[in-house]
Protein backbone atom coordinates (compact mmCIF):
# COMPACT_ATOMS: atom_id res chain seq x y z
CA UNK A 1 0.00 0.00 0.00
CA UNK A 2 2.64 2.54 0.98
CA UNK A 3 5.24 3.61 -1.49
CA UNK A 4 8.03 6.06 -0.80
CA UNK A 5 6.46 6.50 2.61
CA UNK A 6 3.26 7.80 1.03
CA UNK A 7 0.00 6.02 0.63
CA UNK A 8 -1.24 6.10 -2.94
CA UNK A 9 -4.02 8.62 -3.59
CA UNK A 10 -6.20 6.11 -5.41
CA UNK A 11 -5.84 2.37 -5.50
CA UNK A 12 -8.31 0.24 -7.37
CA UNK A 13 -8.25 -3.54 -7.16
CA UNK A 14 -10.09 -6.00 -9.39
CA UNK A 15 -12.98 -3.62 -9.96
CA UNK A 16 -16.02 -5.01 -11.75
CA UNK A 17 -19.17 -3.32 -12.93
CA UNK A 18 -21.96 -4.50 -15.17
CA UNK A 19 -25.28 -2.97 -16.21
CA UNK A 20 -27.58 -5.95 -16.60
CA UNK A 21 -25.97 -8.22 -19.16
CA UNK A 22 -23.51 -5.59 -20.30
CA UNK A 23 -20.16 -5.95 -18.54
CA UNK A 24 -18.52 -2.57 -18.58
CA UNK A 25 -15.52 -3.06 -16.28
CA UNK A 26 -13.94 -6.51 -15.96
CA UNK A 27 -11.43 -6.36 -13.18
CA UNK A 28 -9.61 -3.05 -13.30
CA UNK A 29 -6.40 -2.58 -11.32
CA UNK A 30 -5.13 0.96 -11.16
CA UNK A 31 -3.02 2.97 -8.80
CA UNK A 32 -2.45 6.70 -8.69
CA UNK A 33 0.39 7.85 -6.46
CA UNK A 34 0.37 11.10 -4.54
CA UNK A 35 1.00 13.98 -6.89
CA UNK A 36 0.73 11.85 -9.98
CA UNK A 37 -1.47 12.57 -12.99
CA UNK A 38 -2.80 9.58 -14.86
CA UNK A 39 -4.59 9.96 -18.17
CA UNK A 40 -7.17 7.37 -19.10
CA UNK A 41 -7.82 6.83 -22.75
CA UNK A 42 -10.09 4.45 -24.54
CA UNK A 43 -12.81 3.98 -27.08
CA UNK A 44 -16.08 5.79 -26.66
CA UNK A 45 -18.42 3.73 -24.52
CA UNK A 46 -15.51 1.91 -22.94
CA UNK A 47 -16.51 2.68 -19.37
CA UNK A 48 -14.23 5.61 -18.55
CA UNK A 49 -16.99 7.79 -17.13
CA UNK A 50 -18.36 4.83 -15.20
CA UNK A 51 -14.92 4.27 -13.68
CA UNK A 52 -14.73 7.87 -12.46
CA UNK A 53 -18.22 7.68 -10.97
CA UNK A 54 -17.29 4.51 -9.14
CA UNK A 55 -14.25 6.21 -7.64
CA UNK A 56 -16.37 8.98 -6.12
CA UNK A 57 -19.09 6.57 -5.03
CA UNK A 58 -21.87 7.76 -7.32
CA UNK A 59 -22.30 4.19 -8.46
CA UNK A 60 -21.45 1.08 -6.56
CA UNK A 61 -19.27 -1.66 -8.02
CA UNK A 62 -20.32 -5.30 -8.37
CA UNK A 63 -16.98 -6.40 -6.93
CA UNK A 64 -13.55 -5.08 -6.14
CA UNK A 65 -11.97 -2.50 -3.91
CA UNK A 66 -11.58 1.24 -4.30
CA UNK A 67 -9.28 3.06 -1.89
CA UNK A 68 -9.37 6.82 -2.08
CA UNK A 69 -7.28 9.02 0.21
CA UNK A 70 -6.64 6.03 2.45
CA UNK A 71 -10.27 4.95 2.78
CA UNK A 72 -12.02 1.96 1.30
CA UNK A 73 -14.98 3.88 -0.09
CA UNK A 74 -17.06 0.83 -0.97
CA UNK A 75 -17.57 0.20 2.74
CA UNK A 76 -18.29 3.72 3.94
CA UNK A 77 -21.49 5.17 5.34
CA UNK A 78 -22.99 8.14 3.52
CA UNK A 79 -21.53 10.79 5.84
CA UNK A 80 -18.08 9.18 5.91
CA UNK A 81 -18.19 9.02 2.14
CA UNK A 82 -19.02 12.72 2.05
CA UNK A 83 -15.87 13.47 4.05
CA UNK A 84 -13.84 11.71 1.35
CA UNK A 85 -15.78 13.50 -1.40
CA UNK A 86 -14.78 16.87 0.02
CA UNK A 87 -11.19 15.97 -0.87
CA UNK A 88 -12.10 15.21 -4.46
CA UNK A 89 -12.75 17.64 -7.28
CA UNK A 90 -14.99 16.08 -9.90
CA UNK A 91 -15.61 17.40 -13.39
CA UNK A 92 -18.54 15.81 -15.21
CA UNK A 93 -18.34 15.04 -18.89
CA UNK A 94 -21.35 17.28 -19.56
CA UNK A 95 -20.29 19.78 -16.87
CA UNK A 96 -23.58 19.20 -14.97
CA UNK A 97 -23.88 22.79 -13.80
CA UNK A 98 -26.88 23.62 -11.61
CA UNK A 99 -29.13 25.25 -14.16
CA UNK A 100 -31.10 27.30 -11.66
CA UNK A 101 -27.94 29.05 -10.43
CA UNK A 102 -25.77 31.62 -12.19
CA UNK A 103 -22.19 30.85 -13.23
CA UNK A 104 -20.91 32.59 -10.12
CA UNK A 105 -23.33 30.81 -7.78
CA UNK A 106 -22.40 27.47 -9.31
CA UNK A 107 -18.77 27.91 -8.32
CA UNK A 108 -19.76 29.34 -4.95
CA UNK A 109 -22.02 26.38 -4.17
CA UNK A 110 -19.42 23.98 -2.70
CA UNK A 111 -17.78 26.88 -0.87
CA UNK A 112 -21.00 28.04 0.73
CA UNK A 113 -21.72 24.47 1.80
CA UNK A 114 -18.36 23.42 3.18
CA UNK A 115 -15.97 26.32 3.59
CA UNK A 116 -16.42 28.55 6.59
CA UNK A 117 -15.52 31.85 4.97
CA UNK A 118 -17.11 35.29 4.83
CA UNK A 119 -19.22 36.28 1.84
CA UNK A 120 -16.52 38.70 0.64
CA UNK A 121 -13.80 36.11 0.84
CA UNK A 122 -15.98 33.61 -0.91
CA UNK A 123 -16.76 35.93 -3.79
CA UNK A 124 -13.07 36.79 -4.12
CA UNK A 125 -12.18 33.10 -4.25
CA UNK A 126 -14.91 32.44 -6.84
CA UNK A 127 -13.53 35.17 -9.09
CA UNK A 128 -10.02 33.78 -8.73
CA UNK A 129 -11.18 30.29 -9.60
CA UNK A 130 -13.07 31.51 -12.64
CA UNK A 131 -10.15 33.64 -13.78
CA UNK A 132 -7.90 30.57 -13.55
CA UNK A 133 -10.03 28.80 -16.14
CA UNK A 134 -10.27 31.90 -18.32
CA UNK A 135 -13.80 32.91 -17.38
CA UNK A 136 -13.55 36.56 -16.48
CA UNK A 137 -16.93 37.71 -17.77
CA UNK A 138 -20.53 36.50 -18.08
CA UNK A 139 -20.47 35.56 -14.41
CA UNK A 140 -24.12 36.51 -13.94
CA UNK A 141 -25.35 34.42 -16.84
CA UNK A 142 -27.21 31.19 -16.39
CA UNK A 143 -25.57 27.94 -17.60
CA UNK A 144 -28.06 27.70 -20.49
CA UNK A 145 -26.82 31.08 -21.73
CA UNK A 146 -23.15 30.18 -22.09
CA UNK A 147 -21.44 27.89 -24.61
CA UNK A 148 -20.60 24.25 -23.98
CA UNK A 149 -16.89 25.01 -23.68
CA UNK A 150 -17.61 27.76 -21.18
CA UNK A 151 -19.79 25.39 -19.17
CA UNK A 152 -16.89 22.97 -19.10
CA UNK A 153 -14.61 25.65 -17.70
CA UNK A 154 -17.14 26.68 -15.07
CA UNK A 155 -17.45 23.02 -14.11
CA UNK A 156 -13.69 22.91 -13.77
CA UNK A 157 -13.68 25.97 -11.51
CA UNK A 158 -16.41 24.40 -9.38
CA UNK A 159 -14.41 21.17 -9.11
CA UNK A 160 -11.41 23.13 -7.84
CA UNK A 161 -13.37 25.26 -5.39
CA UNK A 162 -12.61 23.29 -2.24
CA UNK A 163 -8.93 22.93 -3.03
CA UNK A 164 -9.17 19.17 -3.44
CA UNK A 165 -6.30 16.72 -3.02
CA UNK A 166 -7.55 14.51 -5.79
CA UNK A 167 -8.93 15.52 -9.16
CA UNK A 168 -11.19 13.39 -11.32
CA UNK A 169 -11.72 15.08 -14.66
CA UNK A 170 -13.96 13.65 -17.35
CA UNK A 171 -12.76 15.10 -20.65
CA UNK A 172 -11.72 18.55 -19.42
CA UNK A 173 -10.62 19.73 -22.84
CA UNK A 174 -13.30 18.19 -25.08
CA UNK A 175 -15.17 20.85 -26.98
CA UNK A 176 -12.62 23.56 -26.27
CA UNK A 177 -10.60 25.44 -28.86
CA UNK A 178 -6.90 24.45 -29.02
CA UNK A 179 -5.74 27.56 -27.17
CA UNK A 180 -8.12 27.11 -24.23
CA UNK A 181 -7.42 23.39 -24.23
CA UNK A 182 -3.71 24.10 -23.91
CA UNK A 183 -4.43 26.53 -21.08
CA UNK A 184 -6.43 23.89 -19.24
CA UNK A 185 -3.51 21.50 -19.75
CA UNK A 186 -1.18 24.08 -18.21
CA UNK A 187 -3.60 24.56 -15.35
CA UNK A 188 -3.47 20.84 -14.59
CA UNK A 189 0.35 20.89 -14.67
CA UNK A 190 0.27 23.92 -12.40
CA UNK A 191 -2.05 22.31 -9.89
CA UNK A 192 0.16 19.27 -9.78
CA UNK A 193 3.34 21.29 -9.30
CA UNK A 194 2.09 23.81 -6.76
CA UNK A 195 -0.29 21.75 -4.71
CA UNK A 196 0.80 18.19 -5.47
CA UNK A 197 -2.71 17.25 -6.46
CA UNK A 198 -3.21 13.73 -7.72
CA UNK A 199 -5.40 13.38 -10.76
CA UNK A 200 -7.14 11.04 -13.10
CA UNK A 201 -7.97 12.71 -16.38
CA UNK A 202 -10.19 10.95 -18.88
CA UNK A 203 -9.50 12.28 -22.32
CA UNK A 204 -9.52 11.58 -26.03
CA UNK A 205 -6.82 14.15 -26.63
CA UNK A 206 -3.67 12.02 -26.76
CA UNK A 207 -1.38 14.98 -27.37
CA UNK A 208 -2.81 17.11 -24.63
CA UNK A 209 -2.54 14.19 -22.23
CA UNK A 210 1.09 13.78 -23.21
CA UNK A 211 1.88 17.27 -21.93
CA UNK A 212 0.25 17.04 -18.53
CA UNK A 213 0.15 13.38 -17.56
CA UNK A 214 2.85 11.29 -15.93
CA UNK A 215 1.36 8.09 -17.16
CA UNK A 216 -1.26 6.95 -19.62
CA UNK A 217 -3.62 4.06 -19.28
CA UNK A 218 -5.58 2.50 -22.09
CA UNK A 219 -8.96 1.04 -21.23
CA UNK A 220 -10.38 -1.46 -23.66
CA UNK A 221 -13.26 -3.90 -23.34
CA UNK A 222 -13.37 -3.50 -19.59
CA UNK A 223 -9.70 -4.06 -18.98
CA UNK A 224 -6.60 -1.97 -18.81
CA UNK A 225 -4.70 -3.19 -21.83
CA UNK A 226 -1.70 -0.89 -21.66
CA UNK A 227 -0.03 1.44 -19.24
CA UNK A 228 3.03 3.68 -19.58
CA UNK A 229 4.36 6.91 -21.02
CA UNK A 230 3.28 8.08 -24.44
CA UNK A 231 6.50 6.90 -26.09
CA UNK A 232 6.26 3.48 -24.52
CA UNK A 233 2.69 3.06 -25.62
CA UNK A 234 3.26 4.34 -29.12
CA UNK A 235 5.95 1.76 -29.74
CA UNK A 236 3.87 -1.03 -28.24
CA UNK A 237 3.90 -4.46 -29.83
CA UNK A 238 0.15 -4.80 -29.25
CA UNK A 239 -1.72 -4.03 -32.43
CA UNK A 240 -4.66 -2.24 -30.80
CA UNK A 241 -2.42 -0.10 -28.61
CA UNK A 242 -0.14 0.87 -31.45
CA UNK A 243 -3.16 1.63 -33.62
CA UNK A 244 -4.76 3.76 -30.91
CA UNK A 245 -1.68 5.86 -30.27
CA UNK A 246 -0.47 5.75 -33.84
CA UNK A 247 -3.78 7.18 -34.95
CA UNK A 248 -3.86 9.64 -32.08
CA UNK A 249 -0.43 11.01 -32.87
CA UNK A 250 -1.24 11.59 -36.52
CA UNK A 251 -4.37 13.63 -35.82
Amino acid sequence: MKENGLESAIKIGDLRKAFGEQRVLNGINLQVRQGETVAILGRSGGGKSVLLKLIIGLQSPDAGSIRVAGQEITKLEENELNEVRKKIGFLFQQAALYDSLTVEENVAFPLSRHAKVSTDERSKRVHELLADVGMDRDLQKMPAEISGGMQKRVGLARALALNPEILLFDEPTAGLDPITAAEIGELIVDLKRKRRMSAIVVTHDVHGARTYSDRMVLLHEGNIVAEGTFDELQSSQDEFVAQFFGYGSRS
Binding site: K53, I56, E83, R85, F92, A96, R113
Partner: peptide, 18 residues
Protein backbone atom coordinates in the same frame (compact mmCIF):
# COMPACT_ATOMS: atom_id res chain seq x y z
CA UNK B 1 -36.42 14.95 -12.93
CA UNK B 2 -34.42 17.21 -15.19
CA UNK B 3 -31.77 17.65 -12.51
CA UNK B 4 -31.54 13.88 -12.35
CA UNK B 5 -31.17 13.25 -16.07
CA UNK B 6 -28.63 16.06 -16.53
CA UNK B 7 -26.50 14.66 -13.67
CA UNK B 8 -27.03 17.73 -11.48
CA UNK B 9 -28.12 15.46 -8.64
CA UNK B 10 -24.92 13.44 -9.12
CA UNK B 11 -22.93 16.67 -9.16
CA UNK B 12 -24.47 17.64 -5.86
CA UNK B 13 -23.57 14.29 -4.32
CA UNK B 14 -20.07 14.61 -5.71
CA UNK B 15 -19.82 17.95 -3.87
CA UNK B 16 -20.62 16.09 -0.66
CA UNK B 17 -24.07 17.65 -0.39
CA UNK B 18 -26.87 15.20 0.28
Amino acid sequence: GSMKVTEQIDAMEASAVD
